[in-house]
Structure formats: C-alpha cells, structure tokens
C-alpha cells in the first residue's frame, strides 16, 4: 500500500513504515503535522492523531482557521487528546475526540489508539490508517526513555502488521543524543528539519524518496513551499 504524505517532493511512502519527524522549535512542525493529517483525510484514510500539546478542539480549530475544510471527513479523524484532562477541563469524549487521563497514562493512550484502529478498519472498512504522535518530546517530559521506548515498540509493531504508517514528532535540541539514537532504532526512516541563519531546510532518510538532499522551504499560511521549485 502507498501513502501520500502531503509534503512536496516527499510524496509517496510505503505502508508499514514508521517515520520520525525531527526538527527544532518554531520550524513549523505543526504545519507539517497538519498537512500530513489533511493529505490523509483527502485520500480517504483513517487518521489517528495523539495530541499532547493541543487539546482536541484546538486541533480541529486550526483546520477551520486555515480554511482547510475537513467537515465531511471528520468521522475518519480520531484524536487522542492528552491535554484536556491534564488541565482539569470539564469535557467529555466526542465522536472523534477521546481524552486520555494524562500524558503518563500510556495504558489509556494505547487503548484509545487501538479503538480508533478497530473503528476505522473493522467498522468503517477503511484500508489505510496513519498514526501521528505529536509529540514524543512531551511524553518524554512525563515518562523516562525506557518507558516511551516500550510504548513505541508496541505501536511501531502494530503499524507494520496493519500496513499503516506511523509518524512520531520529536524536538531536536531538547533531548540528549542517546535518547534520539534509542528511539531511532524503532523507526524505518526520518524526516529531518534544520534551521540555519533563519532559513529552514528539510530532508528525508530511509523513505525511498528522492528528497535526500537538504532543500530549503518556507511556510506560507498553511502551506509548505519548497524554494527554487
């Protein structure tokens, strides 16, 4: 199975792949994530987004504000919201937002991911699913590396079995090298972002795509534009 990521020049990746998306703060990682979500929805896939920084409603609002219409695709968009309960917000689950107790509640997060997988694949008969965890960095603030490694070990395995894709966002510069190296063992490829003199560059590794050299990009509104294209 093939998946389109919705990032220019990095279009097709194979099902069963686990990908780490790594970049510094303020480089537009959220925009990348949202583009990946949007591309999946447009392709008729099921999307599972584990959100540790933005609560579920906030995620949906971004799409509204960016004038990306996902209204009719919403039932294929499952959000595991790890924020609302942690902040003590008095909100219950909705059709497409399930709330985990906290970012420490890996058991609960795991159950909710599995439930969305089941809902999309068994009940809605959707063949393709992409799982996005945004971000591992927040999870690492609450749990140690080994714990996150075990968690990811389970779900990268499930991604392979389901022929889905998994994308795991992590901040560069926030963790020591060993942390990144340890988690890298679990993924097949990387999408790397770097900043140099206020300019941003992207490249991919291990995804079988052409984008293996650093290319400069800019964020324009909700879009990622590769320069010199």
């Amino acid at each position: 199975m093939e998946y389109h990521l919705g990032i220019p020049k990095l279009d097709k990746v194979q099902g069963g792949l686990n990908i780490m998306l790594i970049g510094p703060p303020m480089c537009g990682k959220e925009i990348f994530v949202n583009n990946i979500v949007h591309a999946g929805l447009m392709n008729g896939e099921g999307i599972i987004l584990v959100s540790t920084r933005e609560h579920g409603e906030g995620v949906l609002k971004w799409f509204e504000q960016s004038e990306l219409d996902i209204e009719k695709d919403r039932e294929r968009f499952g959000i595991v919201d790890c924020v609302s309960r942690t902040l003590g917000m008095d909100v219950s689950d909705t059709q497409n937002i399930k709330r985990a107790s906290s970012p420490v509640d890996l058991t609960g997060i795991g159950v909710k991911i599995s439930q969305f997988f089941e809902q999309f694949y068994m009940r809605a008969r959707i063949q393709k699913t992409r799982l996005i965890i945004n971000s591992l960095s927040t999870m690492l603030m609450y749990s140690n590396l080994q714990t996150i490694f075990r968690f990811l070990h389970v779900f990268t395995g499930r991604i392979k079995v389901a022929d889905a894709i998994g994308i795991y966002v992590i901040e560069s510069g926030m963790h020591d090298e060993q942390t990144i190296a340890t988690l890298k063992q679990l993924v097949d490829g990387m999408i790397e972002i770097k900043e140099e003199n206020d300019r941003f560059f992207i490249r991919a590794r291990g995804l079988g795509s052409k984008l293996t050299e650093w290319l400069e990009y800019e964020i324009e509104g909700a879009n990622i534009v590769i320069k010199g294209d």
């Binding site: 309960r85 942690t86 003590g88 107790s101 906290s102 420490v104 509640d105 890996l106 058991t107 609960g108």
Partner: peptide
Amino acid sequence: TISSAPYTVREH
C-alpha cells in the same frame, strides 16, 4: 491512582 487525577478517576 498512578496515572490519572482523582477527579478523572471518579468521572471514569
């Protein structure tokens, strides 16, 4: 309770 706030537990 080790991974949920007490009010979340009651709600659950």
